[in-house]
Nucleic acid binder design. Structure first.
Lengths: 108, 108
DNA sequence: AATGATACATAGACAGACGATGCATAATAA
DNA sequence: TTATTATGCATCGTCTGTCTATGTATCATT
């Protein structure tokens, strides 16, 4: 049921931004949520997520702050910036166009 | 209106196989058809297509034969093999799962 | 004479996802 | 007791498909 990794290309970014637009999250949590919500069609690992998070923060689309969880473990929570919100909207729009184009070619 | 190239990753293959499943086509024709059908959301160039065609042929998913067109220009026509048909079906199925997963994350 | 369309091809650069690995702690299982 | 799993961060090197640029060649158009 796992999906080809090539198709993942360029999708981690909009997905992360969309999730963070809903609420602040920490990295490990994002991995779990993505994998769970897709019924493990996506199987993100750390090597997929963390470089992307750091890239997004470097670009000013998200920002982070450390918090200590109830279990005593430090977590790095990410929130969306204004710039990130705009980028998120643009990326979601782009996905719509892309998916429509692919569907036209594959099913029309 | 042009779509991010990153999202293209891994999609040239299923699209080409799907088109060739309908009828035999030559490279330059595929480029024109894809760009036109997507309203130029996709803007394939030679550097996108030919390496992919060669890869597919090397993998035994398509096969080629030269023909001389009415305008005198030689064209390399590609047709789908049995193996290619199976791969096409699998890839289209994979796209469906992938798109559904993304939609769940972006719109749910 | 110059440009664009047709039609093939490749070489090098780029960049994102992945696998593997690392550290550290706590809880659970054998 | 010991081993494994889960949590939570991180990075390094590999892989590979796409893009830009370039090349050849012919023909029609400007």
């Amino acid at each position: 049921m796992a999906v080809n990794s090539d198709m993942m290309r360029g999708m981690a970014e909009p997905i992360i931004l969309k999730l963070l637009n809903h609420k602040k999250m920490y990295g490990y949590e994002i991995i779990k949520v993505v994998n769970e919500k897709t019924g493990n069609a996506f199987q993100w690992k750390e090597g997929t997520l963390y470089p992307c998070l750091h890239r997004l923060e470097a670009d000013g689309l998200i920002q982070s702050e450390w918090e200590i969880a109830d279990n005593g473990k430090p977590r790095k929570y990410y929130t969306l910036t204004k710039k990130g919100q705009a980028e998120m909207a643009a990326k979601v729009e782009e996905w719509s166009h892309f998916a429509q184009a692919v569907n036209t070619l594959l099913f029309a």
